[in-house]
Design a protein around this nucleic acid. Structure first.
Lengths: 211, 211
DNA sequence: GCTATCTGATAGCGCGACTATCTATGATGG
DNA sequence: CCATCATAGATAGTCGCGCTATCAGATAGC
């Protein structure tokens, strides 16, 4: 198919597709003549993935590029690339360091307590520590008391995610499943959590009307 | 205190503080003379909240303004304002509508199944439907099979959140707790989920080295 | 008096994600 | 086989956002 049809099928404007190619998010079509290129189903699939990561996942173009590097190169350790992507998703925070030190300890304690094999000083751990430090700075340090409820929930979710992703037909689909599950899964989880909030608050505080 | 000290205490540049005042994220200091204003502890607290929402929560300035409207006006239904904020956090998506219709049904079925009192057509439900539609478009429609695991987890978390927030000393703190819990809580949950992923994947696929 | 700091206002900057325009070339169809 | 249309590839421009720089005039505090 030519670029026009690719555009029609995916709803992405032609110049935008070209832009993605320039940015390395999408491989160029195979040239059939100096001014004619052919795009296949893989391009369409990739383009949908890109749009999903951008729109639903809220990733930047640079983050998408990094994430896609993992899909391309299945040798590279996937979780590391995802970590980098997660980092470029999270705005760079440079919080005051007093709370941060304590928060890091809390994260380390959590990891120890749960018996997790993930290193607390990795990007995810740093993000978590940053969030906890912010909470402390806001006087919401007691929020950490419910951390184990969160951890319980995350363990269940992670197990389910892994089981889902394990049913992939090939390696590339597996990696794509991880990417999608991580990035889009965040959106799913966040939205669902808000619905659960609305429900719980409706139960406790009466039929205040849930959105 | 004057603006300089406020800046020093919070690590936010003076022009940035002025910008926040202009944008309505921070009330102006009380003028003691035509060119001298006094800032109190409430300003510092508010400023920290703003920075937390911006940096950790990843909200836009406009979203922060909306969220803060809920903290100001405690009469307004909090969850609605949070919904709007959540929307402005999520990039506006205009996905192809075929998948969206089915995804909306899936959301409605979920709400029905769980007995949730939250309306599926609210912003959170729409976000969820958009995410599910994207998953379908990517050929990951089977992800919906694990949705109930997510829902279980969200219910537990929501209960814990509500219990935490219920211990607030006054109404304003309660609303602030909701804001913080929702926005920063998302960051906590997301980071923790990734750590749990790393752990689970290390368990299954061996000591691949977890971040 | 003198210097550092402040208010309030306006203008500018840097970046990210597109979008518009242009040229040269080839596809398409009557 | 010629007119019209789409396309590749390149460059430049746009727009919104989150600040940041600069300025004039006023005051603080020594």
């Amino acid at each position: 198919m030519r670029i026009g049809e690719l555009s029609r099928r995916t709803g992405v404007a032609v110049p935008t597709i070209k832009y993605y190619v320039r940015e390395g998010l999408l491989p160029a079509g195979s040239l059939t003549s100096p001014n004619q290129a052919d795009y296949g189903e893989a391009h369409e699939r990739r383009l949908r993935l890109v749009r999903g990561l951008l729109e639903v996942g809220g990733l930047s173009v640079a983050a998408v590029r990094e994430v896609l590097a993992a899909v391309e190169d299945t040798d590279r350790p996937v979780h590391k690339v995802l970590g980098a992507a997660h980092e470029s998703l999270t705005p760079p925070h440079s919080v005051g360091s007093e709370e941060l030190a304590g928060a890091r300890e809390a994260v380390a304690a959590l990891v120890e307590r749960r018996g997790w094999k993930s290193a607390p000083e990795g990007p995810a751990g740093e993000t978590l520590a940053g969030a906890l430090a912010t909470l402390r700075g806001l006087g919401h340090g007691k929020f950490e008391e419910v951390l184990d409820v969160y951890a319980d929930a995350c363990e269940r979710i992670a197990t389910a995610d892994l089981a889902y992703v394990g049913g992939a037909p090939d390696v590339e689909r597996l990696v794509e499943g991880v990417v999608v599950g991580t990035v889009i899964g965040d959106a799913v989880l966040s939205a669902m959590r808000r619905m659960a909030h609305a429900d719980a608050s409706a139960r406790v505080y009466g039929e205040g009307g849930g959105d």
